[in-house]
Design a protein around this nucleic acid. Sequence first.
DNA 1: ACTGCGATGTCCT
DNA 2: GGACATCGCAGTT
Length: 202
Amino acid sequence: MTNDLNINSLTPLSLSFYKKPTLKIAELLLGKYFVRYYKNKPLISRIVETEAYHETGDPACHAHNGKTKRNEVMFGPPAHLYVYFTYGMHYCLNVVTEKEGTAAAVLIRAIEPLQGVEVMRKLRGEKIILKNLANGPAKLCQAMDINKKTNGVSLLEKEIFIADNKSRKKFDIVKTTRIGISKGQSLPWRFYIKGNEFVSKP
DNA sequence: ACTGCGATGTCCT
DNA sequence: GGACATCGCAGTT
């Protein structure tokens, strides 16, 4: 796999990015790099699918019924990770948005592995083919070593961050309804890169 | 290709 | 006690 990506050229997006409206951020995150240092080695991927969640008007949002121990990070300041545990074995990763006191976040549903693929395969399973390494919210957490230890981590630091992709090619964005939920199904708050093979469900 | 289901911890009613 | 922002495997068409 060709790879001209230089880790030193990647710097965390600034706080102002995370102060934009949640739906805007969900869309803007597509194509950006997601970087995670794991045992001093960078794992780098490209975000290809997201979903927005907001305490207001969204019954599927974990914060819809107020603050709890689990969702408290969502009520905190933006540019932090909200990681939650579900189905007894899986983690899912969100980017906290909106000002402190307002609970909202963007779920990262799928990423395209770019660098550190061997490490990701060690974390996921040696026989997993590239396409299936991180094409789902719990899979990408496993591949990038995201778990309860990384809940609440700031995205403005160097350990885990999101970086702009200046050389990105143009792509079309599909806006549609969210998946895997039973409430709030009509909201078109899911975004993905059209035609990208790493999207969780085409 | 599709469909059903078990795993298994934590939160909420 | 039920639901859950899931996944992978087994079985079927």
